[in-house]
């Protein structure tokens, strides 16, 4: 393999995007207003586009002839490296939008920084993704504001979402050894350095939404080591079932 660290770091990112896309896809046809069915699907399509780019590039780096689908569909729970946040069940619309905001508020500065990568392919992926994440921040942010400062019920639901999700924020800023090495090599951004940028994205939105980000003295961390919650296994059961039950088939 050309660069095992880069391969592993790319898989982490690809899994984040693929799993979050999967979650947003669950909304399709069930959103609170028809306009949001389209908005959520647009975001899901952005994410799957990036996931495909990342898996494809990872497969190329690996150089063993695996395809994007081999990587997405033929690894098991312990081999998946996504953040715990993205595998969380959708919950209500408040949960989904807050999770989207948290994720995009991180990925936007991440891709921004990746525009400076030494790797041309990664600069290309980042150039497309940074704009998409900018839009996700805006759209999810608008909803977080409206729900946080809407009715009494919506404010309560938004607060509940905050309590449920804030413990997964810290993991955004953690780097696996592979990601660390890729950062040192100037290929991918240093995740820990993006905390300020993330806060700058989030703070004005939370202020307008009348929400506070609680302290998380015991954050949930483990996805990068393949230590997930129980939900991921069920996602993969659904996602991988056809590939697993027809080994080697083409779809």
């Amino acid at each position: 393999m050309k660069d095992e660290n880069l391969f592993n770091a790319l898989i982490e990112l690809a899994d984040d995007h693929s799993i979050l896309c999967h979650r947003l896809g669950e909304w399709c046809g069930h959103a609170p207003i028809l306009e949001e069915d389209l908005a959520l699907t647009n975001m899901a399509l952005d994410l799957i586009g990036t996931a495909r780019n990342l898996y494809t590039y990872a497969a190329e780096i690996e150089g063993r002839g695996r395809s994007e689908d081999d990587l997405a569909y033929l690894r098991n729970e312990r081999q998946f490296r996504n953040l715990l946040m993205v595998e969380r069940p959708n919950g209500d619309f408040a949960h989904t939008m807050l999770r989207q905001l948290f994720f995009a508020a991180f990925m936007e500065p991440y891709w921004q920084a990746a525009l400076e990568s030494r790797d041309e392919t990664l600069r290309g992926i980042a150039g497309k993704a940074v704009k998409e994440m900018g839009y996700h921040i805006r759209h999810a942010g608008e909803w977080v504001i409206r729900l946080g400062d809407g009715t009494e019920e919506s404010a309560q639901r938004m607060q509940a979402a905050m309590e449920a999700l804030h413990i997964y924020v810290d993991e955004l800023f953690h780097s696996s050894p592979a990601a660390e090495a890729a950062a040192l090599a100037g290929l991918l951004p240093e995740r820990g350095a993006l905390r300020t940028a993330w806060l700058e994205n989030i703070t004005p939105i939370l202020a307008e939404a009348r929400l506070e980000l609680p302290e998380a003295p015991n954050p949930q961390i483990g996805g990068r080591a393949g230590l997930h919650g129980e939900d991921l296994g069920h996602i993969l059961c659904e996602m991988q079932y056809l590939q697993r039950s027809h080994p080697g088939a083409t779809w």
Partner: peptide, 11 residues
Amino acid sequence: ITRAPSLKRKA
């Protein structure tokens, strides 16, 4: 959607 057999088909 959640059971589409490849990333291309899912998109």
